[in-house]
Amino acid sequence: MAREPVILVRDLVKRFDSMTAVDHVSFEVERGEIFGLLGPNGAGKTTTISVLSCLTPPTSGEARVCGMDVTKDSLGARSRIGVVPQEVALYPSLSARENLAFWGRMYGVPERELRERIDGILETVQLASRASDRIDTFSGGMKRRVNIAAGLLHRPDVLFLDEPTVGIDPQTRRNILELVLSLNADGLTVLYTTHYLEEAEFLCQRIGIMDEGRMIAVGTRRELTESIGATQVIRVVADGLDADAATWFKDSPDIDEASVIEGKISIHARVGANLLPTVVSRLSSSGASIHSVEVDDPNLESVFLHLTGKSLRENDQ
């Protein structure tokens, strides 16, 4: 028997009255993967996760978790998933340990293992020293970490993380991303939603890009960028650049596009890094003095832009 994917979504539709939040979405997540759902606000990411975590029934289509249908075997599916909601969902006047004990019991963690598992998970999220403090004395980042820990106690097959880094400082964000990576390294399958493309690029082996309820592309980062023929970008900051420089680069066969804006030249090329020596020597010989050079890999921003005609970043904040 072929191994079934941990998550299987086929032709999923979810309507709220006349509003279609999820529109014929299909994707699969393999065991051991970090799969990212990337999309702007209102794309349908949370709704997709809600259907998968049995919070709301699908209007049509199929959604299976660990081989169990979310509508037909809701209790079975729920016992195999860990859900970390977008907002911190803990009891503020209970301590970290008390919260974890409660959520552990809700997931049916055996009483004799509970203590050990809580200690372990507190270690993992680096909060062992604050175990007995009330949640309402924690910083935002600490609360988020306990929030994640509460979804892990029962050792789920798959963890749903819904925008766990929204509205927190860069330090805590790093912390959480590294936590997710280390959990994944231990074999945990993760479904991660975000509207930060850097996070998706950093974490996810495969990414589904969503917009307005539809899944517009699925694949590895490389597959996605290659599918639209996206290019690397060489950016050079230099004195004495003129419009002629751009014209020269544009005529070169390996270069798709070049432009000069305010003392900075941007060169788009499919094999950008290999062109670097040529670009630098050409600029030097034209009399420009170079301050800095950087090469940007093609990113999901370009993919999103290409597929939707809008920028992901417009929706930031």
């Binding site: 729920r78 911190v88 969902a89 803990l90 959520w103 049916g108």
Partner: peptide
């Protein structure tokens, strides 16, 4: 507070 939803995602 979202804890009800969380409970409903647990078995």
């Amino acid at each position: 507070a979202g804890t009800y939803s969380r409970l409903m995602t647990a078995p």
